[in-house]
């Protein structure tokens, strides 16, 4: 069985086929795959006895359920007011320069994707960002380079 299909089967058998479990199932797929492929959404629809359109419609409502292929580590830089006032743009520029990608792009080796996001709730310690589920606050260009460097070391080759 292919990995996506077995992941979906596993999640659905663990969480259940009730509609209320759709979000947890989709979150489970994203946790492993970083995004929801069209194929994954079709498999979820089959396993939960829903139409693929229902799954797609629900999934695309939520900004953390990406439906484009993502890198292993998704960097989400907060762009809301306080982080923006405290130097978000410098953080973005440092990342863009280091990884040679723009917002919305993934590095060619598939390690990082760079995105912006709305308020992360770290306004007193801005600028802030998420790398997958990890929070980093009080960022400076130097600090963000060190953080990404440490991810590079642990990245799957």
């Amino acid at each position: 069985m292919d990995p996506v299909k077995s992941l979906v089967t596993d999640l659905v058998s663990r969480l259940g086929t009730h509609r209320e479990n759709l979000l947890p199932v989709l979150q489970g797929v994203v946790e492993q795959q970083q995004y929801l492929s069209e194929y994954a959404m079709i498999k979820v629809a089959e396993a939960m006895n829903l139409s693929a359109a229902e799954v797609y419609g629900t999934a695309t409502f939520y900004s953390f359920l990406e439906n484009k292929k993502m890198g292993q580590y998704i960097i989400r830089v907060c762009k809301t007011i306080t982080c923006s006032m405290k130097g978000k743009q410098q953080i973005l520029s440092a990342i863009e320069e280091m990884l040679k990608i723009q917002i919305g792009e993934t590095t060619p080796d598939g390690v990082f994707t760079l995105l912006q996001t709305n308020c992360l709730g770290w306004c007193h310690k801005g600028p802030a960002m998420l790398v997958n589920d990890e929070v980093y606050s009080d960022l400076t260009p130097e600090k963000v380079r060190d953080i990404l460097q440490s991810y590079l070391k642990t990245a799957k080759s």
């Binding site: 509609r19 979000l23 409502f61 953390f64 359920l65």
Partner: peptide
């Protein structure tokens, strides 16, 4: 129950929809 990055889900009836597996 974990949300997935939608501000509007803090509105209580949107929160119910989300809990029930909808937009």
């Amino acid at each position: 129950f974990l949300g997935s990055g939608a501000y509007i889900c803090g509105e209580e009836t949107a929160l119910f929809e989300s809990l029930e597996g909808h937009r």
